[in-house]
Simulated assay, not measured.
Amino acid sequence: MSEVLEDGDIYFLYRPRVGERHVESLDEVQRLLIVLHPWHGRRRLRLLVVGRKRLPEIDEHDRFWAFVDTVVSRPAELYEALRPHLYGTKTRGERFQPPARPVAEGAYCVTRHDDHTHLAYQLELPRRPGPPQHELRIEPEASYVVTVKNPQAPSPPGVGLRGPARAELPADLQERFGTRRFAPLDPPRFLDHAGVEMVLVGAAHDASTELGIDLDAEVERAARNTIFEDLRIGRAERREAPSLTARWQ
């Protein structure tokens, strides 16, 4: 049996590569993004970036790096990070960064299980997953062992965040590591700090059975808002924002 440390809404999005106005496969994807919106406490919105542009393979117990990119209090601030952008470069002139596109949503839990922690979720939408969900490895239900990297510990060359991009944690969270390079995601307040790095390890397809939690009930408790309502995207902006679908956009 596991102890639920945090629960809330989870949203999966992908950011197309620069200049790609229409995505047809994973090759045109730049980043896989996850938004966690807790139901209790300060209810901050956390934007996570997952390495390798997809979730870890469950059966192979893949280990993928991820980090907290942005933490905001107001939905409008998060929408600003997800919207399209035009920017100039010296060599290629003006470049277009397409908006992040929603691909799945549901409910999540961070749980303590024995001496480690899990991030588990169950999808509410889309009802029937399609090619983007399959290629991004977004299962209808899954759990991942999650550990947080000590920001004061060195990283291998070419891996992880560097310099000021790394998190500066308050003393009570930094003390959780002691002399270790990694620690469980306990408390989940680690996620309230941009630059926190973590490792996700594929654990189980049936998270409810593995962890002894009722994810069906979590989904039922979830707010019935879509990502558009939760991020306060207005009607005029919704006409420009991609809708959640089981097809690449």
Rank of each mutant, 00 (worst) to 15 (best):
L5W: 08
L119A: 04
V29D: 10
R63Y: 06
R46G: 00
V18L: 07
S2E: 09
E141I: 00
Y121M: 02
I34D: 04
V29T: 08
Q152E: 10
W248D: 06
R15A: 12
G195V: 04
E197I: 06
R239F: 07
E80F: 13
M1G: 14
S2W: 09
T70A: 03
R127Q: 05
H193L: 04
L48G: 08
P84K: 04
L48P: 10
I10R: 07
L173F: 13
P164E: 11
S143C: 14
Q30Y: 06
E77Q: 15
E124K: 07
R112L: 15
H134A: 13
E175Q: 15
F67I: 00
I10T: 07
Y14G: 06
R43K: 15
L78E: 09
L45S: 01
R238P: 06
Q249Y: 05
R221P: 02
P242E: 13
R54A: 08
S2Y: 09
Q249A: 12
R74P: 00
R31L: 12
F228T: 13
L211W: 03
V4Y: 07
T209C: 00
D115I: 01
G88C: 01
F190K: 05
P157Y: 03
E135I: 02
V196C: 06
E139Q: 14
F190I: 08
D206W: 10
S2N: 10
E57Y: 04
I227F: 15
P102D: 11
D59S: 13
F190C: 10
A241H: 11
L45P: 01
L136K: 09
H85M: 10
A222F: 01
T209H: 13
V201S: 03
R52C: 01
Q249R: 14
R137T: 02
I227E: 12
E220N: 05
L5R: 12
R21T: 14
P188K: 07
L123P: 08
A223T: 12
D9G: 00
A204G: 01
G93H: 12
S2Q: 03
E105H: 10
L136A: 06
G163H: 11
A183Q: 12
I10V: 15
E197Q: 12
T179Y: 03
Q152C: 04
G93K: 13
P140G: 03
P188V: 09
G41N: 06
P156K: 14
T89W: 09
D62P: 00
E60R: 15
V110F: 15
D186K: 09
R189N: 14
R232D: 15
I34T: 13
A142C: 03
R239G: 03
D192N: 14
V199Q: 13
Y79N: 10
A100G: 09
R176G: 04
R44C: 01
H193D: 02
P242A: 12
L136C: 03
E240W: 11
L244V: 02
A204E: 14
I227A: 14
